[in-house]
Design a protein around this nucleic acid. Structure first.
Lengths: 235, 235
DNA sequence: TTTATAATTTAGGTAGACCTAAATCCAAAT
DNA sequence: ATTTGGATTTAGGTCTACCTAAATTATAAA
């Protein structure tokens, strides 16, 4: 009965993201399998193990959901992941499209004590470089999960592609696919950037978007299709 | 045939330290077993696997030695470990007695690319906080191992306990045992500190040592026995 | 040179985390 | 109320990294 191996932590992390940070929210075996990149049969087995340790509740054929303690551990992993991403980008000056994989490895090698020091050094950031929120901690360093539902680990804002012409807002998050991130960085589509939806193409599924500092002088205009437009969120 | 798992890396690291960074230097099974905290039988098995991958040369009943590539990988692990220790102490302000375990976990989650960025951020340190040297890299980022014997990964200097009264020098390294490190930190026995051997006790195995900034004004006098005196190196 | 002792290896076993292929279950469409 | 297709679980297998107990080998002592 050895607890919290790196393997199990990965499942808790995925479960946390897929259940949107909610205790008792069921997640299907196949959703977990595709998120983790393993066979469904492997998920069934792992989920059973997590159940024996009281970290998830598994109802056969229905799905798995996090318990209170499972949620805490999952949130800690997501937090560690995003802390390291901030560190790698802000401090080590790595590119934002290469930090996801590095953080994936580091997150499981991070004790709560180290996480506290890292967070303090980074001045307790609220989001990762791609705009996703860090699960918060209490003063004692424990990851918060008050009552039944904590804050969502997923990005706020609406997909850029779904907005109407005339909308003005700022990028809140970008999905972490390396090639997409490289394009966005070059195009200026980074969290905090001001965007203005200029028009929607009458025939093709294309949105004209102005990206720029402020007003409309320095802005650059981009054509955004559904592929890109659904990966960038705006608020 | 899956290469470089965290488990195998640990063996290479230990081998690197125990063979003093030398290709072909044999290390006994039991030395590895006690350094890694596993059963000798486990070492035999792992060493055989490392042999199949061309990372070590194993002569049954005689010992295992690193090959050229094995040395490179082992050195990289030691380097990663000591880089992280520097980071944890200098940047995150963690205590020097708690960073060894954290670094042990982080070192296997560190890509060569990340190691390069980390080293650059830390201005390419030459030693870890306890005084042990970092295996150097080439400009390309590869860990150096020129010809048959690279630099020693172990501390320079002589044990404090073996010096004669009148000796003046400075601490070069301290062995990384948590309780010992806590005592040394408080006593001022840190790498770079000036030490003067005052006298040796005529009856008991005790050395009187002055530890202090410079000269002999601000110095504090300590009694050092063999236990402590063999864990602190001076040059 | 023989023998004893300590180091080392072999043999056989466990647990974690994955896999494929073969059942099994559920739910929606007929 | 059946049927059927997709999701899920079970069954059986692999590979890593450990273990203990039982051989085996090397070496140092008698």
């Amino acid at each position: 009965m050895s607890r919290r191996t790196p393997g199990l932590e990965e499942y808790l992390e995925s479960l946390y993201k897929l259940s949107d940070g909610r205790v008792g929210e069921p997640v299907t075996t196949s959703a977990l399998a595709s998120d983790l990149g393993v066979a469904p049969a492997s998920v069934t087995e792992m989920v059973k193990r997590l159940g024996e340790q009281g970290l998830v509740e598994h109802v056969p054929y229905k799905g798995a959901s996090l318990t209170d303690t499972g949620l805490t551990e999952g949130a800690a992993m997501v937090r560690n992941h995003r802390l390291w991403e901030r560190f790698l980008v802000d401090v080590l000056r790595m590119d934002w499209d290469e930090v996801h994989d590095e953080a994936c490895a580091l997150e499981h090698a991070t004790s709560p004590h180290l996480a506290e020091h890292l967070a303090a050094f980074l001045s307790n950031p609220e989001t990762c470089p791609h705009g996703y929120p860090l699960p918060p901690t209490t003063a004692a360093g424990r990851v918060v999960r008050k009552g039944n539902s904590g804050p969502s680990p997923n990005a706020s804002g609406r997909p850029l592609y779904d907005l109407e012409p005339g909308f003005v807002g700022e990028v809140s998050a970008v999905e972490e696919t390396p090639e997409l991130l490289r394009y966005c960085a070059e195009a200026g589509l980074v969290p905090g950037a001001r965007v203005t939806v200029v028009s929607r193409h009458p025939i093709e599924p294309i949105l004209e978007v102005r990206v720029g500092e402020s007003g409309q002088a320095a802005g650059r205009t981009l054509s955004v299709g559904p592929r890109l437009g659904r990966c960038v969120r705006v608020k």
